[in-house]
Design a protein around this nucleic acid. Sequence first.
DNA 1: ATTTAATTTTAGACAAACCTAAATAATTGT
DNA 2: ACAATTATTTAGGTTTGTCTAAAATTAAAT
Lengths: 227, 227
Amino acid sequence: MHLYCFNMTLSEEDYIKSIYHLSEFNSKSVATNAIAEQMKTKPSSVTDMVKKLSEKSLVNYKKYQGVSLSEKGRLVALSIIRKHRLWEVFLVDKLNFSWDEVHVVAEQLEHIKSDALIDKLDAHLGYPKVDPHGDPIPNKDGVFTKSIKKLISELPVGSQGVCVGVNDSSAAFLKFLDKNKIALGDTFKILEREDFDGSVTISTRAGSINISKQIATNLFLEIVDEE
Amino acid sequence: MHLYCFNMTLSEEDYIKSIYHLSEFNSKSVATNAIAEQMKTKPSSVTDMVKKLSEKSLVNYKKYQGVSLSEKGRLVALSIIRKHRLWEVFLVDKLNFSWDEVHVVAEQLEHIKSDALIDKLDAHLGYPKVDPHGDPIPNKDGVFTKSIKKLISELPVGSQGVCVGVNDSSAAFLKFLDKNKIALGDTFKILEREDFDGSVTISTRAGSINISKQIATNLFLEIVDEE
DNA sequence: ATTTAATTTTAGACAAACCTAAATAATTGT
DNA sequence: ACAATTATTTAGGTTTGTCTAAAATTAAAT
């Protein structure tokens, strides 16, 4: 038996992905309203769809009790996320897109149905482990190493890690990073944090620089060593 | 004003493409039944859709008189075909798909909406002029050099050309070509044709070989020089 | 030139995915 | 504990793209 079904509509896939992301951290059940907000639809539409997904055993659902993904649903979600992130790597590594442009296009590409395509794309990209934002790419069976990606503002002094992503992906912010010689893949160490303004001094290849709290809350590090 | 509209549904795009292909050679108007057969739907569904496309000025349509693409519709068709063929090149050149596998996947990829994506893909592939089947790739403005691709069986003795495609793309046929050292991109010259069985002698890099009429009716050459 | 056959269109229905408005259940505040 | 608020569901309607069956038009055949 195949792990996930191919006969899913675009809309069904989007709902599954949405539910996955909403329950990614607080692994409780997800509220109808929360899904409606994320999907930019109305709660009544969500109820309709959730019933449908429940009949397909993709979610666990009891009236008024919220929704959670079944194991089957979780695997579907992970296969979509795998595709999304592989396409993002492709767009950045091969087509020279910048971080902030890839999401919208990947949202479309993630729905392409072809196992062979994804296998070959994966090989072509050299079996990447993370996407351009530093998020882990699940393997074929939905297995992935949980990211220990954290915002600089949330890390203690002494932490060291590889810059793997941004929170704010506006053109302005990316331009700022460029000007300050901060790039994806660089290794940083957090040297000092000022209590009064939350600014942080970090060491980079180009020496040490001080970044504002606002910047610190928008840069993700993948932790290598935490003192 | 943009040359083609982005707010088209998947189904609308498929109909436009279908009408384009049906009127590609006999440039008359296309019959409702013909579209229905190609699209694997019923004639009544075609009538509905054709009315809709007519209101959007994508086709010329008068009751009981058949359909033809408007200039606008033709440009939409060519932009879809451009995408389809670029993706086919990508699948073969970069992901190592074989000729016969790419069509189905490209049918999905051709609907991805992003100008930037197609521009960058085009550049990444080195601005190819033809797809893996030897069919020409229209440029951004829908301009393309009409292919002078012909079956070996239809060419006179003395013709010379580059092998650009196959008619029958079965695994068995592709295997046969492989065994006889015939590959896409090879230059052939037609040396002789036997009247009694239609078999043809062609010169290849590896010397001259005789191919049966059946093979000759399944191999396309892009003509370089015709005596 | 009619009749027959084939093609095309209309009319009415259906499923998917959405909507609004009203009803019901759960939660919160006092 | 119970009224008020918020969250969720139901009921009924819309649009898109499909269908079947019947009616209308065109083409073919004798």
